[in-house]
Design a protein around this nucleic acid. Sequence first.
DNA 1: CATTACTGAGACGCTGCTGTCTCAACCGTG
DNA 2: CACGGTTGAGACAGCAGCGTCTCAGTAATG
Lengths: 183, 183
Amino acid sequence: MVTDRDQVLRAAASLLVRNHGASMTEVAEAAGISRATLHRVVPNRDALLDQLLWLGLGETVAALTTAEPETGEPLAALHRVILALTPVAELFRFVTTQPLDETTPEFQVGYHALDERLTALFRRGQASGAFRSDLPATWMVDALASLLFAAALAARAGRLPGNDNPRAVIDLLVGGVTRGETE
Amino acid sequence: MVTDRDQVLRAAASLLVRNHGASMTEVAEAAGISRATLHRVVPNRDALLDQLLWLGLGETVAALTTAEPETGEPLAALHRVILALTPVAELFRFVTTQPLDETTPEFQVGYHALDERLTALFRRGQASGAFRSDLPATWMVDALASLLFAAALAARAGRLPGNDNPRAVIDLLVGGVTRGETE
DNA sequence: CATTACTGAGACGCTGCTGTCTCAACCGTG
DNA sequence: CACGGTTGAGACAGCAGCGTCTCAGTAATG
């Protein structure tokens, strides 16, 4: 039996995004291994966090890329993006909640590129008239990220059926970004 | 010069909601006092967390009460609620992110009452037809809490002008909860 | 069967944080 | 001025968590 490194990292990310102060013992438990084995997977906590950042960035970028945010109608693209990012919501959140000034310049480059692709999607929608222009595109990105994570937590807590996860985010966000407020 | 206990607690909450693992030294720094003085304000970390929970719950409930969610049109009530909760978004978030099973039964009673009042507002809106019924009211509460905090973070980071804070949440959430999705 | 690889348990030394405490400095008041 | 209250700095002991390491047990393979 060989430890599934990928599964360990994912379990670690899932725990740490909700409880950043979890001890290595708690991380190991969440991953179903002993602390000694966790230390065989990663040399220390710093290395673990670093690897999680790159895993999170890689996975999020890959998911976003499959959604092709740069092509087609902005609204349809947003749908695809939400669908694609939903399974990686926790990893995405992990990436967006690490203090950037504690990361390497390379990571920051990757992070900003990701952020820019999402922002560009909302800007494209604004330019085309499909999305409202009275709210900053950057705020829409924040809202997207926030709602994705909230949906992940709600699903984890059983407050949203798992199948409704993307639906919930799509319905709320799309309604919010496509409409002017009704008074 | 006497330490402003209330200000210390607020600064502590603000830091701890973003970095739950911050040390007592970091909390003291955020509050502008020494660690020794922090220990004069609260006997230990557990007591600090406990007091923050009650401060957060108290402030959130008070803010919500001024908004009168139970009266008037649901949409107007939601506006008032967002306006009222915006200044206490961090405290509200602190309350909603503490593991409930680590709190006292009294606190849980207060927390559930708060949650129920918000849920009831969305349910009232659904019953009246003002809000969509295809998403759970509990999810709308989650989304509200999430967006309030996201807006607070964005404002803190300078990504939203402070004055636009409630606007951003109102616009997004109201659009999301009042509309069926456009396809 | 023997061998190899992997794992968990636990011991160990070190470090950072915690709570406790003392003391000097400072401020406000009578 | 003297006094009382408050504060920050820093020392100290204790502890949890960390990283390191050993060893026995287990599983897989030839």
